[in-house]
Amino acid sequence: MKPAPFKYFRPESLDEALALLAKHGDEAKVLAGGQSLIPAMNFRLAQPAILIDINRLSALSFIEEKRGQMHIGALTRHSMVERHPLVAQKAPLLAETMPNIAHVQIRNRGTFGGSIAHADPAAELPAAMTVRGARICLRSTRGERWVDAPQFFVGLLTTAMEPDELLTEVAFDELPKKTGWCFVEVARRHGDYALLGVAATVRLGMMGKVKDARICFVSAGETPALATNAQDALNGQAPSAELAKAAAQIAAAQDIDPPSDIHASARFRRHLATKLTERALNTAFARARGETR
């Protein structure tokens, strides 16, 4: 299990990195935390000719709040996100999500941007960011563009990124007032990819009715798609256990297309989607009403 040889570049600046990508993008892979890429290389499932190591671009490691928006740099390590007070305060859904990502040794090395760019539907962050309506910043020598999460995740391990583009940061709104959240997943062992996971936020309106519900799944399809049918069923309704149950059933039946594999059948995943969505919504309702944190 030794990786095949590759050519190694370690740019010291963003401009240098973008120039390298412009030149080698087609045959190069960006190396950030490498916690998915290097295992794949050790199995020789991935044999990139060129690696562009962005770990020296320390300017891409940051967590900031600007005008009600959270900005997280692509090179920010998971463990920094997990421990950051701003995240706990302004992005409690993300804070709840982070400990589910693998193990501490992986979180110390793995990066926020790397996890988004890898676009694994079994990973937690794509779902958590989709639910938060995140926008993803892509830079190249051609310029900068921001892509909304649903447009960014186009397929299994596939994104809207062009070969010469680098994911530099992710931005999303801080959680509005009167908004409840929940991230819950079922994994065989702590730190494993989830058999199924749910990220949900529920914002309540003036009369205590659901104004904006958002649900997104982990391991339930090729991309972390929003559960639009379930969301429609929730919006405008008064939150209740019955509503959570009904919406969960809609989500599991209409909004997902889960895979079957050795760990779980599609049918079991649908079942889990029902149960976990119900749990997630009930928690989010309670949090939105300020009953619990």
Partner: peptide, 22 residues
Amino acid sequence: LSPNRLFELVYGDEKTSPGREN
């Protein structure tokens, strides 16, 4: 055994009893 297998044992597999879990 596994959670998936317990689910099948309790609710049957796709062919024998679809939808029993709900």
